[in-house]
Amino acid sequence: MSHSRLNNPRVSRARSALANRVKHKPRHAFCAAKAITALLGELASLTNRQLYWSGSSDMAVMSIQHDVNVWCRDGRFFWTDFFRGGAVSHPASDPVGAAALLNPFASIPETSYSQHRRALSGLAAA
């Protein structure tokens, strides 16, 4: 004996109708992982340090150095610029321009940036 829900034609029609209503992204939709890897390729030529990234088609993140992460979502790159004092947003369709804006972060060696942050935190504590 089978269960009444397993072979019920009404249930199978309802499931197929639900499956037809599910919307899929078009093939030309924005892919955050592709945009972040394009930015990674631009920044890799500027620095010899290891750059890390992770993500999916909806959202991706890349770590440039300690405390500097670039997020890509909804067709834009986002990061916090400590030197200009705020959050920065840049179109993801322009990874070359974003790399030019991120160049100070990529070109500063990690040790000197960490020493700079420690000096600033010492001034703030005093």
Rank of each mutant, 00 (worst) to 15 (best):
M1G: 12
S2W: 14
S4Y: 11
S4E: 15
R5H: 13
L6E: 10
N7R: 09
N7Y: 07
N8I: 07
N8D: 15
R10S: 09
R15H: 06
L18P: 03
A19R: 15
A19I: 06
N20Y: 06
V22R: 13
K23L: 14
H24P: 01
H24T: 13
K25D: 12
P26L: 12
H28D: 14
A29D: 13
F30S: 10
F30M: 07
F30K: 08
C31R: 09
K34V: 08
A35Y: 00
I36C: 03
T37Q: 08
G41A: 12
E42H: 05
S45R: 09
S45L: 08
S45M: 03
L46Q: 11
N48S: 12
N48A: 10
Q50F: 03
L51E: 04
W53C: 14
S54C: 13
S54M: 09
S56V: 08
M59H: 06
M59Y: 06
S63M: 13
S63W: 05
S63V: 14
V68Y: 01
V68K: 01
N69G: 05
C72L: 06
R76A: 14
F78H: 10
F78V: 04
F78W: 08
T80H: 04
T80I: 05
D81R: 02
D81E: 03
F83Y: 09
G85A: 01
G86I: 03
V88P: 01
S89E: 14
S89H: 09
P91S: 13
A92I: 03
V96Q: 14
A98G: 01
A98P: 00
A99F: 01
A100H: 09
A100S: 13
L102G: 00
A106F: 00
S107L: 06
P109F: 02
S114F: 09
H116Y: 15
R117E: 06
R117F: 09
L123G: 09
A126Y: 11
A126H: 15
